[in-house]
Design a protein around this nucleic acid. Structure first.
Length: 582
RNA sequence: CGGGGUGUAGCUCAGCUUGGUUUAGAGCGCUUGGUUCGGGACCAAGAGGUCGCCGGUUCAAAUCCGGCCACCCCGACCA
């Protein structure tokens, strides 16, 4: 492609509303333009990159044996009401009415639609297993679209759904998808972490997220530096912390007046103690029944863990009236001593010495509290949100808090949808069972944004060879010099014949201008055709990600460049074998 | 949905506080001509704006007031 024949509106200045690097650079490099909040047009360069990502995903899904289909974006609302998700999704569902005033949903995901297909057409174990996938535009009316292409209301997603006869077969399908995901992201040139994620009904390691580490990421995760443990913060387990050496001798229990001090900050400041010395007591309603939950003052309750520990389906913080009734004190003065409800404690609490906690009496706290001596929890375990520096649950290492961009998610669904929608199969004995499902998503747009987010410099984008809109930029320094242009055209022709994707910067512009645009759009390999080198019969090659260039005789240039590109692509598609935690 | 901010030329912004010398401006970009030509050149001449929308106040509104809309940020939310 010739630059003058395509449309690459580069910008010298940063767009005013772009905050994160990927957004800024995608706009400046002429990849995208916004239409409304959370919806972007992909311009030629951006669309080519998107197609590259799409094609890699498609090839690897096909390789894994998944079957590509295309489902509608408009769904009847009734189908969503059948699974209850019409209400669960709430305002995030985009809704439209047709001319008959029937309510339609713009699909945010396709469990309902695929399960509807399967319940009508798959009836026998002989038809299983099967994995369907599609690459299609999804719609979610996000409360807050942001960060350019990272969180939008309309986005391209690869979603796949597996159908199996039982859990062992589901695990096989899951592993297939997991490995396909590793291949996909390796080929894209992304550096990613696979983390355990909240798993829902099946439990165990039933869900993994693929994260690209970036400070601008919206997800928090922890990673162990010694072993391979990594988990979404919602999910992350915490190892048992060693007891801190007791400070001084064990003190007796004492009640102190703390008028109006109800928060950890207020009490710790008032009593001149550390938040980690305090025992925070929270009253929850688990399926309507009050329970008391203890965490250290500097920790937060992880409600997912609490829900599992209680085997509760509904969990909420108690209202002030309930707290008054259970503790005998207003909010802010609850403590574990003397409570008549079930008492659950996070492990860190039992290591506290000379602790501070509420006295279950307005305006009073207790100091010198010794867990074990002064109260005994009914249950002790991991209940808190992991924090930076916590102990790894798998090894003696330490957890580090990181931020990441979620680019993929694999999930064992079980029978959640097949049961509700009646997707059953008959086994070899004629018995009917709900089909066991898994679902597997990849945000295609996020692949591009995540790559740019983690692969750029102050000049612009640094594409991986596999996602780059073109492999090579041929840059003649002076288009009015026929000799330079003949050489540039020759390289363009030869490279194209060798299967290399080339962009020829045939604009009549100054060298510096063209160099800056070249760095901005970030094609992997640049070939400069200039007068000085050409007098020696040479052109100049340079990788975008490297600082130095080298020269090659004109006759060899195309072949050499083609070999470099081929080698780089091959390197990406022969990934290191990664250890799998599934 | 709560809190905050911004809407003026294709882009980035000034002008608004204190209404009228502003016939609405600058830089970048764009067009034409010339000089330049290996890291975002220079000179000259141009094209380009219902000042987000609706209403109000006023002799007079980009500027003051009210309503609405859009976009951005923080939070809540995110199978």
């Amino acid at each position: 492609m010739r630059w003058t024949q395509t449309f690459i509106p580069t910008l010298k200045e940063d767009p005013a509303d772009a905050q994160v690097p990927s957004h800024r650079l995608m706009v400046r490099a002429g990849l995208i333009r916004q239409l409304v909040a959370g919806a972007y047009t992909y311009l030629p360069l951006g669309f080519r990159a998107l197609q590259k990502a799409t094609q890699i995903v498609r090839e690897e899904m096909d390789r894994a044996g998944a079957l590509e289909i295309l489902m509608p974006a408009i769904h009847p609302a009734e189908l969503w009401q059948e699974t209850g998700r019409f209400a669960d999704y709430g305002d995030t569902l985009m809704k439209v009415r047709d001319r008959k005033n029937a309510l339609l949903v713009l699909g945010p995901t396709h469990e309902e639609v695929i399960t509807d297909l399967v319940r009508h057409h798959i009836t026998s174990y002989r038809q299983l297993p099967v994995i369907f996938y599609q690459i299609q535009t999804k719609f979610r009316d996000e409360p807050r679209p942001r960060f350019g292409v990272l969180r939008t209301r309309e986005f391209l997603m690869k979603d796949a759904y597996s159908f199996d006869v039982d859990l062992p077969h589901l695990n096989q399908s899951y592993d297939k998808m997991y490995h396909a995901y590793c291949r996909i992201f390796d080929r894209c040139g992304l550096k990613y972490v696979v983390v355990e994620a909240e798993s829902g009904p099946i439990g165990g390691e039933a869900s993994h997220e693929f994260m690209v580490l970036a400070d601008t990421g919206e997800d928090a995760l922890v990673e162990c530096q010694q072993c391979r443990y990594a988990a979404n913060l919602e999910r992350a387990e915490v190892g048992d912390t060693q007891a801190a050496p007791p400070i001084g001798s064990e003190q007796p229990l004492r009640k102190v007046h703390t008028p109006g001090r109800t928060t950890i900050e207020q009490v710790s400041a008032f009593l001149a103690c550390q938040p980690q010395q305090m025992i925070k007591t929270l009253i929850y309603l688990a399926d309507g029944e009050p329970v008391a939950v203890l965490v250290r003052g500097d920790h937060e309750v992880n409600e997912n863990k609490l829900r599992r520990a209680l085997a509760a389906s509904r969990l909420e913080l108690a209202d002030p009236e309930t707290i008054q009734r259970v503790t005998g004190a207003p909010v802010g003065f609850a403590g574990p001593l003397g409570l008549r409800v079930r008492l659950l404690a996070d492990r860190a609490v039992i290591h506290v010495r000379n602790g501070v906690t509420g006295a279950n009496e307005a305006d009073y706290h207790l100091v010198g509290v010794q867990p074990g001596r002064d109260f005994q929890p009914d249950w002790i375990g991991d209940l808190r949100i992991a924090s930076d520096g916590d102990a790894c649950p798998r090894c003696p290492g330490t957890l580090h808090l990181r931020r990441g961009i979620e680019i993929g998610h694999v999930f064992k669904l079980g029978t959640k949808y097949s049961a509700k929608l009646g997707a059953h199969y008959l086994d070899d004995k004629g018995q009917s069972h709900p089909i066991i499902m898994g679902c597997y998503g990849i945000g295609i747009n996020r692949i591009l944004a995540a790559l740019i987010e983690t692969s750029h410099d102050e000049k612009g984008i640094i594409w991986s060879v596999s996602l780059a809109p073109y492999h090579v930029l041929v840059l003649p320094l002076n288009v009015t010099n026929p000799e330079l242009m003949q050489t540039a055209e020759r390289l363009y022709r030869e490279l194209t014949e060798l299967g290399v994707e080339v962009l020829l910067d045939d604009r009549d512009a100054r060298a510096g201008f063209k160099f800056n645009d070249a760095d901005l759009i970030g094609l992997p390999l640049r070939i400069v055709v200039g007068e000085k080198a050409l007098q020696r019969g040479e052109v100049e090659l340079k990788w975008r990600h490297e600082a130095t260039s080298w020269t090659v005789p004109v006759e060899q240039a195309a072949r050499r460049a083609a070999n470099e590109i081929a080698a780089a692509l091959k390197r990406l598609s022969q990934p290191l074998t990664r250890s799998v935690s599934a």
